[in-house]
Design a protein around this nucleic acid. Structure first.
Length: 108
RNA sequence: CGAGUCGGCAGGGCGGUCGCGGCGGGUGAGAACUCGUCGAGGAAAGUCCGGACUCCGAAGGGCAGGGUGGUUGCUAACGGCAACCCGGGGCGACCCGCGGGACAGUGCCACAGAAAGCAAACCGCCUGACAGCUCCGUUGGUGCCUCCGGCACCGGCGGGCGCGGCCAGGUAAGGGUGAAACGGUGGUGUAAGAGACCACCAGCACCCCGGGUGACCGGGGUGGCUAGGUAAACCCCACCCGGAGCAAGGUCAAGAGGGAGUCCUCCGGGACUCCUGCGCAGGCGAUCGAGGGCUGCCCGCCCGAGCCUGCGGGUAGGCCGCUAGAGCCUGCCGGCGACGGCAGGCCCAGAUGGAUGACCGCCCCCCGGCCGCGAGGCCGGGGACAGGAUCCGGCUUACAUGCCGGCUCGUCCG
RNA sequence: UCCGCCGUGGUGUAAAGGCAGCACCUCAGAUUUUGGUUCUGAUGGUCCAGGUUCGAUCCCUGGCGGCGGAG
């Protein structure tokens, strides 16, 4: 099992995306972590719902069979959906690079 | 119209494109797809009270502990609500109050002040005694002079609206202080004073009459003239309180270890089914009773063969509870009101890695800027507090903006 | 769901109803060629609102925030 962590923090809402390779199915799985530091219950739910829609639109670009963990930082509370989408895009782009690197370097 | 006060309601709307959860129907072997329908709040919040419900043996007595604290009601219940009483604030509508007891006892009241709680007495005031000083009168002696007489010094006696000292007694009127000082004001009275006495006022206790279910209110009389505050200090009194909580509780399955059976085998073992429900070590104990049953202690009663500690291992699932209820709406009736009764109608979230959303357009409201004489137009920004997790009744806290109504005060007009 | 504890200068802590202290930090001055050390001095606080009391960090009520525990 490979766990690849994007260590750099993106500017706005969604700084961290951790993909975990699984051998399970072809469907990619995504989980969200929105801690209490982001805001109260209403704010946390709103952030999670926005992230759910943003990630849903990008599911086709994610390799099948892997599991993503998206963690929201406190600045995500005031971010619009477009900003969250941009952060997700940049995070996915960085992950794809590092994943290619690991593919060329090691056994799968 | 302005100011104020009390109460109630709403908490953006429409459309489009994607999307989510429950229930029901259809297609399908299934995954899933599709149609219909329902899908957060006034506080869902904080978890501060009270209940329903479930289990603990339907839960004994005493002590301890906790809670409440005007009265009468409402309610399933409450620390909630309503009306009223009392106290305080406001011109008023109205608002605020943990609002029993300080002669059951204990404690505390810093600093200041004579004294801080039970009666005393520092200063002061008054009386008397003693000695002294001073002044006046009188008298004796000595000395001086202008030798009648006067003056000075020393002494005796008597006296003073005299002075200070000391002692004894009376008194509490007055005294800077302090949050609070032993009733207030005026008078009589006295050596000085004092409820010692008198009038009025305030306040206390008791009795009587009247009103009220009651808290209490109004009136009258008697007494003693006065009793400080603090119980959100200990405490006393009255009333209430068994404990835990939906991770309550029930049920099904799985599991490690062990046993039995069947099958396969390369003879090491492995697979499946059924039963039990893990292993190791230490300690205590089986009527001489461990441990437990109501949380703290004691007593009483009861259950009782396992219990405790450490290490290691397994499980990390489903279903029920789980949403029809002190339910919501409308109307009528009773009640000042909280609320209750009757009739009719309605079904209104049940998630569980936790659904009710995302994006866009138009409208609405507010703010700012620009253009325009103006009606208005354009651009930009903003539209709260906040989301169920067993359910319900309250309390408390948060909340952009808008709407409605009752009442009070002031100004103007008629 | 239930229970408990705490909140005092920037930090760590005392005060037990009666003048809010102590140490470190910060700042200023002195000493030193400069810096450090040392000495002297100063600024700065009771989480918020209301209540009880003559008087509240302390007692009571309600909020806010933090920490911890049980199943």
């Amino acid at each position: 099992m490979h766990a690849i962590t994007a260590e750099e923090v993106a500017g706005f809402g969604v700084p961290k995306v951790d993909p975990v390779m699984t051998d399970a199915g072809a469907v990619p799985r995504v989980g969200f972590v929105v801690s209490k530091a982001v805001g109260n219950s209403v704010v946390r739910h709103r952030v999670a719902r926005r992230l759910r829609h943003v990630v849903r639109d990008r599911l086709g670009t994610v390799r099948p069979g892997c599991t993503l963990v998206v963690r929201a930082l406190p600045s995500a509370a005031s971010a619009a959906s477009a900003e969250l989408g941009g952060d997700i895009d940049s995070a996915l782009r960085r992950l794809r690079l590092s994943r290619d690197h690991s593919e060329t370097g090691g056994a799968q």
